Amino acid sequence: MKRVLILMGLCVALISTSCQSAKEEKEVSSKLLVTNPIIMDTTIIRDYVCQIRAIQHIEIRALEKGYLQKIYVDEGQTVKQGQMMFQIMPMMYQAEMQKAEAEADFAKTEYLNAKLLADSNVISKNQLALVKAKYNKAKAELSLSQVRLGFTEIKAPFNGIMDRFQVRLGSLVDEGDLLTTLSDNSKLWVYFNVPEAEYLNFKTVSNSDNMKNVRLLMANNEVYEHPGVVETIEADFNNETGTIAFRATFPNPKALLRHGETGSIQMVVPLKKALIIPQKATYEVLEKKYVFIVGKDNVVHSREVVIRSEMPDLYIIKSGLKPEERILLEGIRKVRDGDKITYKYQEPKSVISHLQVYTE
């Protein structure tokens, strides 16, 4: 009798547990939502590593040999076009110019005397021509000495910012020695490489301001306040990387940006007929993305999908999913591959409208 009572108790417990499980399964199933991918035109923001270059960045070199006598500027200083920067000891070149001036004056006097004699038919015109040639040679040598003396004064060729000095006061510099560099940072040229497919997209909609206007994400992860404009594309592709270089021009009124900085260009790229799903419809295993496909028999099957691009709350699918296939939207952690479910279908437009997204 005791054994019968025990068996009856076990049966009651099993029936109670079974009923409870069925009730829980029914509650879980009623919460599952299913939807479809949606196909729509949209835009994404692409980041490209870039290099920032001044529109003019040149080396300032010595044009003549001599001792560096004076330095009129400082490292990092802003200079104006024509401002004196360096003075190489000019004494030898001044002496050469004075000598050339004296020889030019002497040749001029000879020429004027010879001209008077030629006018009086005392000497021939050929003799006058020889004296005149000597005078012209003396003037040319004077001009050359003046130019060489001018080379001892090194002036700023344009408005810009000085870089580090490569020599110090009193240094003996030779012709062609590097003194410093000068950068015109009033505008910046920013270079970045674009893959071939995206280059073709750009050329297809090259009249779009969204493609021409770009933003610069600086090294501190802040967006530069002034937008840039894509003005130039290089002629050839790099066959090793499959990219082509773009150049965007950015204004720099506050001189915040400097030559040699790095950052990222942010370009708005249009996508036609993109296949889009909510991010919450996916799960990750070993850095791969998966979704649950709901079959006609209401059985779910796990499938890997390849993400083309990411947007806020959305993924743009590259492969692994068809537009007509239904995917599990909620309850992903409650099911396993091969489970049969009951679900409620929700239109993809309705799903997306409840997400914080930026689409067009």
Rank of each mutant, 00 (worst) to 15 (best):
K322W: 05
F106A: 12
L257Y: 05
V4N: 08
T42F: 03
D184N: 15
P157A: 02
G82F: 09
I39L: 08
D209P: 09
V229H: 13
G9F: 05
L10C: 14
T243Y: 04
M211K: 04
P253M: 13
D47R: 15
Q279V: 10
V268K: 09
P348W: 05
K280G: 00
L257C: 06
G331T: 11
V194R: 05
A235G: 01
E141I: 06
G263K: 04
P227L: 02
D236E: 15
I352C: 05
L188Q: 15
E330A: 07
I161V: 14
Q356K: 08
I293G: 08
Q146A: 06
D163C: 05
I307Q: 01
L314S: 05
V214Q: 06
Q146M: 03
V300E: 03
N213P: 00
Q83T: 07
K115P: 00
R336L: 09
A22P: 00
E360S: 14
L169F: 00
I44N: 01
N238P: 03
H259I: 05
M162E: 07
I123P: 00
Q81H: 02
S186G: 02
Q87Y: 04
S30P: 03
V230M: 10
H226V: 02
I233D: 03
L275D: 04
I55L: 01
P312D: 11
E96N: 06
E360C: 02
R61G: 01
V285G: 00
M40I: 12
P253S: 09
E240R: 07
G76P: 02
V73T: 15
E110Q: 11
S145M: 04
L286Y: 12
I317D: 04
L178K: 12
I307H: 01
A22C: 09
E27C: 01
